[in-house]
């Protein structure tokens, strides 16, 4: 450890030498890493925004359970209470006749006058159940099993669409992150392998002098880390500009998109990119280091 700390300056200097000894190739590697991280950052930012959208869509997933007209208000409230405790149910509340009437009036808007043709309020009270869209089928089955429930309006096709959109967004995001991770690891490990090959004589000499694999390999780990962290910093700066610009455009022209607070998004993207840079840089370097044995 004493040696390690006193050699830190040497390790960093060696890492710098390795980078600058093959400038052109490393510039390409750096540029490639920045572009890949930019892709990742875009996915992360998009994911952040879409997770709000997904959250909203999930909140909208609901079924309506119509109960026996014999139930009084207290019994209806007790039934809603029971339903709210079911697995996969986020919330259940009684919508009484007058609220149902007001909602329809709101939906019909300019055509709401048609409701005045009725002598009495034609709408029944029901229980509005907000559910996890991934568990629609099982919840509907359970709700139907309650003897007090007469009819369940499930909006299955809407719920299915919501669920498909959510799954689609999550799958595409996961695939892109996976692909970006693997690509970065390959690029960095290839760069390290190239560095090791270029310095093979020095590595052989150090081994003959009794240097440990850690001593020989640490400058190469530093190279991988420097390159990815520098790429991460540049990517974060570019994202700062892009997100600022994006908020100006999207916030103004598409106001219904639920954008998260800008500072939160910037912080989230920067943290993910820097964290991923460090992790991928280390993994890539360690993979690349395995070629030291061949020298």
């Amino acid at each position: 450890m004493k040696n390690f700390i006193s050699n830190l300056g040497y390790f960093f200097k060696e890492a710098g030498r390795i980078i600058f000894s093959n400038k052109l190739s490393n510039i390409f590697t750096f540029s490639g890493t920045v572009l890949i991280l930019l892709m990742l950052a875009s996915v992360v930012a998009g994911w952040n925004v879409s997770s709000r959208l997904v959250g909203m869509l999930e909140e909208e997933a609901e079924i309506s359970a119509f109960f026996d007209e014999d139930l009084d208000q207290k019994e209806a409230l007790e039934l809603a209470e029971k339903l709210s405790k079911l697995d996969g149910v986020r919330n259940a509340r009684v919508v009484d006749e007058s609220e149902a009437y007001e909602r329809m009036k709101e939906i019909l808007a300019d055509d709401a006058g048609i409701l005045e043709l009725f002598e009495h309020n034609p709408f029944k009270a029901y229980i509005e159940i907000r559910i996890d869209p991934g568990r629609t089928e099982s919840i509907i089955e359970t709700v139907r099993g309650f003897k007090e429930i007469g009819y369940v309006r499930d909006n299955k096709s809407v719920l299915k669409s919501i669920n498909d959109i959510i799954r689609g967004i999550k799958t595409i995001g996961t695939l892109i992150i996976f692909a970006v991770g693997i690509t970065t690891v390959i690029i960095i490990s290839h760069m390290i392998r190239q560095g090791i090959y270029n310095n093979r004589d020095q590595i052989k000499t150090l081994r003959l002098l009794g240097a440990s694999p850690m001593f020989i390999g640490f400058p190469f780990i530093c190279v991988g880390l420097f390159m990815t962290v520098a790429a991460g910093i540049l990517t974060s700066l570019v994202m700062l500009i892009l997100i600022n610009k994006g908020y100006q455009i999207m916030g103004g022209s598409i106001p219904f998109i639920p954008l998260p607070p800008k500072a939160d998004l910037l912080l989230g993207v920067t943290l993910v990119i820097m964290g991923v840079s460090i992790i991928l840089g280390t993994i890539g370097s360690l993979f690349g280091l395995s070629s030291i044995k061949d020298q």
């Binding site: 050699n7 009794g210 440990s212 001593f215």
Partner: peptide, 15 residues
């Protein structure tokens, strides 16, 4: 010369 002794049991000053 220093590179050949950095990984031995010497302090920074001794190296």
């Amino acid at each position: 010369v220093m590179m050949g002794i950095r990984f031995l049991d010497f302090s920074g000053q001794e190296i």
